[in-house]
Write a protein that binds this DNA or RNA. Structure first.
Lengths: 114, 114
DNA sequence: AGTTCATATCGACGGATGTCAATATCGACG
DNA sequence: CGTCGATATTGACATCCGTCGATATGAACT
């Protein structure tokens, strides 16, 4: 994946026909969320607060490199914050970036209905 | 893609560690949104209301089969509604399904902050 | 029936992506 | 300094997915 930090801005899908560039950015943001392992990592870290990577390999049944890779994708996208303390890497949720996705979905989808 | 109708339910990513099956469902839902062409299709149809497929091929610069494919993916996921009238296919946004995604993101991401 | 036009399906190709084993990096500790 | 332990990186492989040309389906109209 290796997605850059999410920068897409948009006031909902329904605000105006999405330009090519904006659509590309938004799609990249959604792509980060479009993996079950990443979603579970997010949910675990969010539930536990700051979490050591050493506690994340076991529960998901994936190899250590795979988990490390997904944590990098999430961190690069700005959804997680990584802090290395000694031998260990501590991850926490960086809630700000979720707004981009939420805004895209919260535009007016309900208003269209009628 | 060929994703079934979205059925994932979840009260936000932070509610509880996502199970394997729930994560799979949610990821599939996000995957549908993780394509720039599909996002632009959604935004155009949402802006115009019911839209003929014949008006969707040109503005995106993709081939007719490609657009047809994306429209099918969106329809199968329950995000669009298709109605064939005579020779033409009319698409409209089916806002209900967006709730799944919105709920996943609206859990508590802001509360985690502090 | 035959033609034309709009849309869907099929088959194939290429690039992206998730996965793992092997290896590299780097801090801690003796 | 040398080893161990935790995490990151690399390289390779298989699968998935977006794309298109070609073709099929089916409606309208002569």
């Amino acid at each position: 994946m290796e997605v850059k930090t999410i920068t897409a801005c948009c006031d909902g899908l329904l605000a105006a026909p999405l330009g090519e560039a904006a659509a590309e950015d938004l799609a990249a943001a959604f792509k980060v969320m479009a993996d079950p392992v990443r979603l579970r990592l997010l949910s675990i870290i969010a539930a536990q607060g700051e979490t050591c990577a050493c506690n994340l390999t076991a529960p998901l049944g994936k190899s250590q490199p795979t988990i490390s890779h997904h944590l990098s994708v999430l961190t690069d996208a700005g959804l997680l914050h990584r802090e290395k303390r000694g031998k260990w890497a501590w991850y926490s949720v960086a809630p700000d970036r979720f707004a981009v996705l939420r805004d895209a979905l919260s535009g007016t989808p309900d208003l269209v209905r009628r």
